[in-house]
């Protein structure tokens, strides 16, 4: 009997401890959430304050008078050097270069992955390994020769030139994504289709493509995020009129002329981040899948 009762009290204590532990757990997780959200909060509130309020108020306080002036300045008036047209033209540059670059590199990746996974030939595995290694190189090692080649091709400082660069260095990733997806489709399917007289193109078009929607979404999101957020290629291979939005943002923030307008900087940063953030919020599941798939190789 006594045994039983002590047992019960310890169990009760145990349960109280469990609940406390649970609350502690949620508290810690929420603190982490605050840590990750803090910069976004600061960016948003700062962008809605006037410069006067920024100078006198606190970094973490909410804006007393909400004003969208900084946003309109960032979008159409802020100076990125000698020009003062805001982010708008560069935002369009980024769109203009990422859409074709994503489409071309995804298409090539699908075709390459299809060949490497289902139409193996002597050397196809070697080609795949070479492409895989290509994903890992630090791009610094290709910057100088690429600058020269773009010059020779008359594409230096142009948007088609940037599209070309992003396609070339995106193929490795897109091929990897599609190859890993197509390799799970049984080879018997292809064999049976061949017996029925279907060829390379027919099989791709009517069997593989209809199955590919998930991997297309993953690849498109991955490529779009990479290309939209790229800075190294953008800053190396563009000139005054053709810079992508990341380069323009950096120029706005680090321009040394005039008064430092922190609210404009923050509004510009949010504008530049908007498209990829939107993609993440809408299709986070696919974003994470691409991230983890991409990480298997780096």
């Amino acid at each position: 009997m006594t045994d039983f009762s002590t047992n019960q009290t310890t169990r009760k204590q145990g349960r109280a401890g469990q609940i406390a532990l649970r609350w502690g757990l949620y508290l810690i997780l929420c603190l982490f959430a605050l840590y990750y959200l803090m910069p976004l909060f600061v960016m948003l509130t700062t962008s809605l304050k006037s410069l006067e309020e920024i100078r006198t108020g606190s970094l973490l306080s909410l804006p007393r008078n909400i004003t969208f002036d900084a946003w309109s300045t960032a979008w159409s008036k802020a100076c990125t050097g000698i020009q003062c047209e805001g982010l708008r033209p560069y935002f369009w540059n980024s769109l203009l270069l990422s859409v074709p670059a994503v489409m071309i590199s995804t298409l090539l990746g699908a075709l390459n992955g299809y060949v490497i996974a289902q139409w193996k030939f002597k050397g196809s595995n070697l080609i795949f390994s070479l492409m895989l290694f290509g994903c890992f190189i630090p791009f610094q090692v290709v910057l100088l020769p690429m600058a020269r080649v773009l010059g020779i091709l008359n594409m230096a400082g142009t948007i088609p030139g940037l599209i070309f660069v992003h396609v070339v260095y995106g193929i490795g990733f897109t091929t990897l994504f599609f190859r890993n997806y197509y390799v799970t489709i049984p080879q018997e399917l292809v064999k049976a289709a061949k017996v029925d007289g279907a060829g390379f193109v027919r099989i791709f078009w009517s069997i593989f493509l209809p199955l590919s929607l998930p991997i297309i979404v993953v690849t498109v999101i991955w490529q779009f995020t990479q290309i939209w957020n790229d800075f190294l290629f953008g800053v190396s291979f563009s000139q005054a009129g053709t810079q992508p939005v990341t380069v323009a943002l950096n120029n706005i923030v680090n321009s040394t002329t005039g008064v430092k307008e922190y609210n404009v900087d923050m509004a510009a940063a949010i504008i530049a981040a908007m498209p990829t953030l939107l993609v993440y919020v809408v299709a986070g599941k696919y974003f994470i899948r691409g991230l983890t798939a991409g990480s298997v190789k780096g």
């Binding site: 957020n229 943002l249 950096n250 923030v253 900087d265 923050m266 981040a273 990829t276 993609v279």
Partner: peptide, 10 residues
């Protein structure tokens, strides 16, 4: 999902 330029700016 953010560009490192955005992170750096923030």
């Amino acid at each position: 999902a953010l560009s490192l330029i955005v992170t750096g700016t923030a």
